[in-house]
C-alpha cells in the first residue's frame, strides 16, 4: 500500500514549510550579519540592501576569532576522544550488569545532569585554581568530559541494550575474554551509534559556555565565550555576534555533512532504547 503521489507532495511541502520556519531565525541572523546596523534593525525590515562582509572580516581577521576556533576545536575534539571511549566502556558494563547497582549508578548520573550548572561554576573555579589549572586545556577538557559522561553513558547504553546477550555468550564460549567481547563483538555492532553519540558530545563540548567562561582565559578562550563578550550595549556588537555565530556553525555543519551517511545509518540502526 504505497502512499499516493499527491499525499507525498503534500507531506513534502508541509515538512519544507516547517523547515523554512525553523530556519528563519538563522537566515535572519545571517542577513543581520551582512547589513549595517542602521539597515539591520530598521522598520519595516529591509530586504534589499548592499551586503557588507565587514563584520565577518572584523570577527575572523581583525579580532582573530580563528584563534578561538582553534581552542574550541582542540577542546571539543579532545573531549569527544576521551569522553566517548570511556563512556562507551562504562555503558557496556552497565548494559551487562545485573542487580540494583547499575540502576543506582544510572540514576546517580542523571542527578548530575539535573543540578543547575551555575552552582557548579564556583566550585569548579576553586578546584581549578587549587590545581593551578586555570586557563589550560586539560582542565577544560576534563570538566567537559565529566559533564558529558551522563549523556554519553545513557545513550551508548541504550545501543548496547540492543545487542543480544546471546552474542556475548557465544563469544565467551569461543574463548574470548571480557575485553574481547566488548571490543571485538559488541563494539562493531554499535558503531553507527558511536557516531551519533559523538555528534551530540561534540555539540555539547563545542557550544558549552558557562564553564568555558569560568575556566578558560586568554590562552584557551573558546568561541562561545568570545562571542558572548560582545553582548549588547553597542549595535555593532550585535552585528559582530551575528557574524561570529553564523561562522561558528559552519564546522559542525561540515562535520555533519561529511558524516551524514554514518549518522543516517546510526539513526536507522537507531535503537536508542532505554
Amino acid at each position: 500500500m504505497r502512499p499516493s503521489r499527491t499525499t507525498q507532495m503534500v507531506l513534502f511541502l508541509a515538512l519544507c514549510a516547517f523547515t523554512v520556519v525553523n530556519l528563519t531565525p538563522i537566515i535572519w541572523a545571517f542577513m543581520t550579519s551582512i547589513k549595517q546596523p542602521v539597515d539591520a534593525f530598521s522598520v519595516p525590515p529591509k530586504l534589499i540592501f548592499t551586503p557588507t562582509f565587514e563584520f565577518h572580516y572584523q570577527v575572523w581577521v581583525e579580532k582573530e576569532f580563528w584563534r578561538f576556533l582553534i581552542n574550541s576545536a582542540v577542546i571539543a575534539i579532545s573531549t569527544v576522544c576521551i569522553s566517548v571511549p570511556i563512556g562507551t566502556m562504562a555503558a557496556f558494563a552497565l548494559s551487562r550488569m545485573r542487580g540494583g547497582g547499575s540502576r543506582g549508578i544510572l540514576f546517580g548520573l542523571l542527578a548530575m545532569r539535573m543540578f543547575p550548572h551555575i552552582l557548579l561554576a564556583i566550585p569548579f573555579f576553586v578546584l581549578a585554581q587549587w590545581l593551578s589549572l586555570i586557563d589550560t586545556y586539560p582542565m577544560m577538557i576534563m570538566a567537559l568530559v565529566a559533564i558529558n559522561q551522563p549523556f554519553t553513558i545513557w545513550m551508548m547504553r541504550s545501543f548496547f541494550m540492543d545487542v543480544p546477550l546471546e552474542l556475548d555468550e557465544a563469544a565467551r564460549i569461543d574463548g574470548c575474554n571480557l575485553w574481547q567481547v566488548f571490543y571485538q563483538v559488541a563494539l562493531p555492532v554499535v558503531r553507527p551509534g558511536l557516531w551519533i553519540t559523538s555528534l551530540f558530545s561534540l555539540l555539547l563540548a563545542y557550544n558549552e559556555f558557562l564553564f568555558a567562561l569560568v575556566l578558560t582565559g586568554p590562552n584557551t578562550k573558546t568561541l562561545p565565550v568570545a562571542i558572548a563578550e560582545y553582548g549588547a550595549e553597542d549595535l555593532n556588537y550585535w552585528s559582530l555576534s551575528a557574524a561570529a555565530a553564523i561562522g561558528i556553525m559552519l564546522p559542525i555543519v561540515l562535520f555533519m555533512m561529511a558524516l551524514q551517511r554514518h549518522l543516517v545509518r546510526g539513526l536507522a540502526f537507531g535503537a536508542v532504547k532505554g
Binding site: 561554576a121 564556583i122 586555570i134 567562561l213 569560568v214 582565559g217 586568554p218 563578550e229 553582548g231 550595549e233
Partner: peptide
C-alpha cells in the same frame, strides 16, 4: 596586558568568582 571585556553582568560574575576565592587570576 590581557584585556578581557564583556557585558557588565558577566564581567561582574567573573570578577566576583575570582575575587571571592582570593585568586590571583
Amino acid at each position: 596586558v590581557n584585556t578581557q571585556l564583556m557585558p557588565f553582568d558577566k564581567a561582574n560574575e567573573l570578577a566576583t568568582i575570582g575575587l571571592s576565592s582570593k585568586a590571583d587570576t
